[in-house]
Write a protein that binds this DNA or RNA. Structure first.
Lengths: 117, 117
DNA sequence: TGATTATATGAATATGTGTTCATATATTTG
DNA sequence: CAAATATATGAACACATATTCATATAATCA
């Protein structure tokens, strides 16, 4: 390695150091995980509904989304276990609601972005 | 089915008709597809970088993200083929950039939501 | 032209996800 | 208590996705 290539490498290294993420990696991991959870038509629908109706029973969500009960239940269970939703029993019904209210903002945002696709 | 159950069913039906999606289903499908594409730490990083640096070579992105070249190339190719990115060769380098500028807004939005997690 | 650098591609594999189906549980009501 | 309703659960399967590795291509330069 001669002097020139040494200097060039050095410059290159400095240059590339300028290009950095604006967000720590762990945050990207977290964000990606949340997006992944929501990145499904039925689950987006759930977020949409619960963002507007505060709380709904499984049946109501099933009706509104047209999703079969068992499948919907799986979706809801996943979303609950990963902290997106919470549920409370009331008699024979179980009401679901958003644990992270911000999620509906996310939907609105995507809505927005998506217009310009 | 007696009169009462008929009336009840009817009321129930009317009630449940009030609960509807605010967005047509196809739109949810589209939105979910976009989110799915971005819902990965490396790909979020790519969106972040290209939102701020306008255009970058594969190597620059690889350095900044710490992602191995072949794997990154796969990610970039996917994102390009699905319309999120575009690429242009310039000599030995290939520059990638956001085709959907709105994507970086999406990232900001998630950032926001994510704070309150 | 041959070496080097930047990038892409394809096969193989591991792992994850969505869906279905059958069945279980909990609550209410007659 | 038996029946009906609302919801959950678990196994099985199909399918998609992420990753790795080896190799290909394309451009540049000596």
């Amino acid at each position: 390695m001669n002097m020139c290539s040494y200097i060039c490498a050095s410059i290159k290294e400095e240059m590339s150091q300028l290009i950095t993420l604006s967000v720590p990696k762990e945050k990207l991991v977290k964000a990606a995980a949340i997006m992944k959870l929501v990145a499904h038509p039925t689950r987006l629908a759930v977020v949409d509904l619960l963002g507007r109706y505060d709380r709904l029973t499984v049946n109501e969500i099933a009706d509104a989304t047209g999703c079969e009960q068992s499948l919907l239940s799986h979706h809801l269970t996943n979303m609950r276990l990963s902290g997106l939703l919470k549920s409370e029993r009331e008699g024979v019904n179980i009401f679901y609601s958003l644990k992270l209210k911000e999620l509906s903002k996310l939907l609105a945002c995507i809505e927005n972005c998506e217009c310009n696709l």
